[in-house]
């Protein structure tokens, strides 16, 4: 298992991507895609990345749902700010948020969610203090941003990665 298929999930998703790009599921393409996927996951194994250990799977879907809802709300808020000619453009600022999450994959997912939200951007993570520097467009609700980060996302990520 570990010799032939070091990353079964990666191999499978590479195969699926190949078939999607070819837009066919004929045996020839499956064979070719499988060969490419196996070779690529061998190359990945040479890099020896750390494997993520997911403890609980259910919170992943709740996290995805929350992220989509928040991104939608933030899209509306930021478009209003940009398109309103009288809006105050000087309310943005930097925020430092302390985090308990130390897992690397959890932090990577959190940073992607924060940056994909139009109202906030992840700038820097300090591993020693386990603090993160983010920039938000609406600094007046700073406590709201910290609460979103800590209670909406971080608790779920702690559940997922432990």
């Amino acid at each position: 298992m570990s010799r032939v298929l070091p990353y079964p999930l990666l191999t499978l998703s590479l195969l699926i991507m190949w078939l999607l790009l070819q837009q066919s599921a004929s045996p020839g393409h499956i064979l070719l895609g499988l060969a490419i996927a196996l070779l690529a996951s061998r190359a990945m194994a040479a890099l020896q990345p750390e494997k993520p250990r997911v403890i609980r799977f259910l919170p992943i879907f709740r996290l995805a749902g929350r992220a989509v809802v928040d991104i939608m709300a933030s899209n509306i808020a930021v478009s209003k700010l940009i398109l309103n000619p009288n809006s105050d453009m000087t309310k943005s600022g930097f925020l430092t948020v302390p985090l308990e999450l130390k897992h690397r994959f959890g932090l990577a997912i959190l940073s992607c969610i924060v940056t994909a939200t139009p109202g906030s951007a992840w700038l820097e993570y300090h591993p020693e203090e386990s603090e993160v520097l983010i920039h938000v467009l609406d600094i007046e609700n700073d406590q709201e941003w910290i609460d979103t980060l800590k209670y909406r996302y971080e608790t779920l990520l702690l559940e997922i990665f432990g």
């Binding site: 899209n75 930021v78 478009s79 940009i82 139009p118 906030s120 951007a121 920039h135």
Partner: peptide
């Protein structure tokens, strides 16, 4: 937003509107 925002750190929020929804 890229045109209207004053500082770089504000402008970094602007493209995510287009790339998300």
């Amino acid at each position: 937003g890229m045109v209207r925002f004053r500082s770089f750190y504000q402008r970094i929020h602007a493209p995510t509107l287009g790339t998300s929804f």
